[in-house]
């Protein structure tokens, strides 16, 4: 009888360990905030989006907000990042703290000289991959006009966005876009092409009153 038990024990252990779920069911959201030039005036809208995302995220999900700066491929540009606790009450507390941190950032933000969107995207990909989230979303709150400082190489860097949902938010039209709308369309098409070439899914949400579709994937 004992021998039989020893035979069954490894099988039972295998069965129990096999029950564990290796698939991640959590969501990771990375928001890139454009802080260049006049776009800083749009940051109150960004706050609204951040609050919306905070309300929608569940315990165990990750959220990071980073600014798009002259050179954004760095952790230094991450304003706030958190993985919420499994307990709902603690997660709520963390959400409150996160909001306070963002509020402080918005109050003291200074405009950046350049706009390194690619660098920010690379940083976002790295961050979300590290988190191991099951559903990964990158939100870009920007006019999508990339403006790189001299010497920074971003053009030929491939974006590995397989399994990522990239959403461009509040893509404002510049004065030059009004003169030549093709520029605006070209900008959107350029980023769409880059994201889809990297295997990602591209969306544009300009109507901030309809954020319900933001985290639908």
């Amino acid at each position: 009888m004992k021998r039989r038990l020893w035979l069954w024990l490894p099988l039972l252990t295998l069965l129990l360990t096999g029950c564990g779920d290796n698939v991640s069911h959590t969501r990771g959201v990375y928001l890139l905030l454009d802080t260049s030039g006049t776009y800083t005036q749009e940051l109150d809208k960004a706050q609204h989006i951040i609050n919306f995302v905070l309300a929608k995220l569940n315990p165990g999900d990750s959220f990071a907000v980073a600014r798009i700066n002259t050179a954004s491929f760095t952790e230094k540009d991450i304003v706030a990042a958190i993985t919420f606790d499994g307990q709902p009450s603690k997660a709520n507390l963390q959400k409150r703290m996160f909001r306070d941190k963002i509020d402080r950032f918005v109050k003291g933000v200074k405009p950046s000289g350049y706009t390194d969107i690619t660098g920010g995207l690379l940083q976002a990909i790295e961050f979300l991959n590290e988190q191991g989230a099951g559903r990964k979303t990158i939100l870009i709150f920007s006019d999508l006009q990339e403006d790189l400082a001299k010497g920074y190489i971003r053009k030929r860097i491939p974006l590995k966005l397989k399994g990522f949902d990239v959403v461009a938010l509040n893509v404002t039209k510049l004065h030059s876009d009004n003169v030549d709308p093709l520029k605006y369309m070209g900008r959107l098409a350029y980023w769409k092409k880059r994201v889809e070439a990297g295997g990602g899914h591209w969306r544009v949400v300009n109507d901030l009153e309809r954020l319900d579709t933001l985290l639908q994937n």
Binding site: D21, V23, H25, N58, P59, G60, G86, Q87, P88
Partner: peptide, 15 residues
């Protein structure tokens, strides 16, 4: 929902 407070809301078994 309150069970999430006891066993956590982010762990899964078989989906």
């Amino acid at each position: 929902r309150p069970m999430q407070e006891m066993v956590g809301g982010s762990s899964y078994i078989m989906g």
